[in-house]
Computed example of a mutant assay.
Amino acid sequence: MLTRVVRRVVIAPAVVLLAVLMWITLPLWLLGAAALSPLLPGRWRALRLAWIFVVYLTMEAVVLAVLLGLWLASGFGRRIRSPYYEGIHYDLVQGVMWVFFREAKRVLKLTILTDGPSPDAHPGVPILVACRHAGPGDSFTLIHALMHWYRREPRVVLKDTLAWDPVIDVLLRRIPASFISPDPAEGDDLESKIALLASGLDADDAFVIFPEGGNFTPERRQRAIDKLHRLGLDKMAARAEAMTNVLAPRPGGFIAALDAAPEADVVLVAHTGLDHLLTVGDIWRELPMDKRIVMRWWQVSRDEIPESREERIEWLFGWWEHIDAWIEDYDGHPT
């Protein structure tokens, strides 16, 4: 509770103040970035990234002001979670995503491609979206795709550390979303949170989960393999060792969502273009200049998904092996 007060009372006003100061001193920042650009790899790298930071910080400040206005208009928050205001907040998310990705694609020369059948191959049913997690920005790219290209209203499970961004903190507490801690001590409570969020999906909803539990790194991959060995799941550990591009999925949350939404189809999502960015140096050298992000979708009808827990774990591992093979093949033969 104390950390939420700090985010709302200290960090959010600080972001608005920083945005104002940035615009007051903007010519100096742009001149400095332009002067640095010839010294850095890439075409106008510093200047282009500086402009994206300006756009991001400006949007943060503007959205915080809009969110405050909506809170006041809703009777000091009394009606803020009503269907009417929920729809307004989803529209706000969609608008923010549209502006930011439009600028990112224009300034940073990003290209986002989708491969495979549309997730709406079976319209009129909710979907559970299980996505590979690797590199910065993949969750935002996925939400952008779901809202703009597939007209879905996402319900997202995300780490509680992301709540330190004041817009994410405020906005995602007004629409269906769940901040969870990766701390395994949460145990069943974590799965109950996921099940609650996945309940009551309608035909326009998309429940989003990242079964790996975190971005791919070699260290996390090895820890996941070691954990399977400690649990006596040596066959699963061997399968996880054979997957070199993804982490072994954690099935508990995904299965809880399946049980809570028995009418939903499942969409599996792989992507490439944002991976191999493991350190700050990697991000500075490669992200996100002149990148092509490819997202591959597979939709599985509910009647094709096994019923028992053991069969579902096997099914999920099989799909993660398929995703690993797709990434390996695509990275070796990009088109």
Rank of each mutant, 00 (worst) to 15 (best):
L92V: 05
V93D: 00
Q94E: 09
G95C: 02
G95A: 02
G95H: 08
M97R: 05
M97G: 00
W98P: 00
W98R: 15
F101Y: 14
E103V: 11
K105G: 08
R106K: 13
R106G: 00
V107H: 07
L108I: 01
K109Y: 06
L110G: 01
L110I: 08
L113H: 01
L113M: 05
T114C: 10
T114V: 13
D115Q: 14
G116A: 02
P117W: 00
S118K: 02
S118W: 04
S118G: 09
S118N: 08
D120K: 14
P123N: 07
P123G: 02
G124Q: 12
G124E: 08
V125K: 14
P126H: 14
P126R: 15
L128N: 10
V129W: 06
A130P: 02
A130S: 07
C131K: 05
C131Q: 12
R132P: 02
A134Q: 13
A134K: 06
A134R: 11
P136W: 11
P136R: 07
G137C: 10
G137N: 04
F140V: 13
T141G: 04
L142G: 06
I143A: 12
I143W: 08
H144K: 13
M147P: 05
M147W: 02
Y150H: 15
R155Y: 04
V156F: 10
V157E: 00
V157W: 03
V157C: 04
L158T: 09
K159P: 08
D160T: 08
D160K: 15
D160S: 10
D160H: 12
D160M: 07
D160Y: 06
L162V: 11
A163D: 08
P166V: 10
V167N: 03
V167A: 00
V167P: 12
I168W: 00
D169K: 05
V170T: 10
V170E: 12
R174I: 05
I175R: 01
I175W: 05
S178D: 05
I180W: 01
I180R: 06
S181R: 04
S181N: 06
S181Q: 05
P182C: 03
D183G: 02
D183V: 06
A185G: 10
E186S: 10
E186N: 11
D188L: 14
D188G: 13
D189F: 09
D189R: 14
E191I: 04
E191D: 14
E191Q: 14
S192R: 15
K193I: 09
I194T: 07
A195F: 09
L196M: 09
L197Y: 03
L197N: 06
S199M: 01
S199R: 15
S199I: 04
G200W: 07
G200D: 12
L201Q: 11
L201G: 01
D202A: 05
A203M: 01
D204C: 04
A206N: 09
F207H: 03
F207R: 11
